[in-house]
Amino acid sequence: MASTSEPAAAARGGGLTRRRRRRLVLGGEYGVFVIAVGLAIALADWHALHINFLNWSVARDLFPDIITIGLRNTVAFTVSGFVLGLVGGLVIALMRLSSALPFRWFAMAYIEVFRGLPALLIFIFVGTGIPLAFPGFELPGGVYGQAAVSLGLVAAAYMAETIRAGIEAVPRGQTEAARSLGMSQFRAMRTIVIPQALRVVIPPLTNELVLLFKDSSLALFLGVLLSQRELTKFGRDAASQLGNTTPILVAGLCYLLITIPLGYLARRLEARQKRGRR
């Protein structure tokens, strides 16, 4: 006993115990946080903020147009871009996994280029580059077509990598079983592997949808008509017209109305999948 009490005493005395150290660190963190918030509250011009950002009469006047025009177009751009991106991403993913070298090269180049460029550049390229390169050619749907293609080009690059990972996550035995039943490589891919792969990638694709919602704001660079404005453009126009920033805040809330539930859904799907896989 005597031999063990000596180091035990040394451990308790002198320096900080774990409990004391944790209290000290937590106390410091809360302290910094409270001071920062306090400073922000004390220094902000609440009157100006209230008039410019939280002006209820301005906010009221935005409805229903901000929903029926702004949000509606945002959703239209995003969903059409997502569908194009999904189809394109699947094709690129299959090319990436192809045994033909040129296909793999093309897919890798595509993914690197379109993931590496700012989405804004793609919008400008589609909006001005394509009409210049192919005179007389017009994407079907006008601005809607241009936005869908721009978003789809970007989304396809990200989704291709996600879908490829999903396809590779399907065990090889699945393909072998399908082939042993006489299915061709293509048939096995289409009927057995891809349905399983898509199930795996639904949560990450939902996150991709959230990203697209935000990127759809870049459509304002396409030169849209009044009825084609999406949320950001709508909010910005209203803000400069009224000389008040409240519309920006309302537009932001409209985004969150969509993106927060979507993010929640993605997390739920992911959790359910983890439980299901065992």
């Binding site: 035995g173 699945q174 072998e176 079983a177 399983q196």
Partner: peptide, 8 residues
């Protein structure tokens, strides 16, 4: 197959 390989 040893590992059945049913389509889940």
């Amino acid at each position: 197959f040893q590992s059945f390989n049913l389509f889940p």
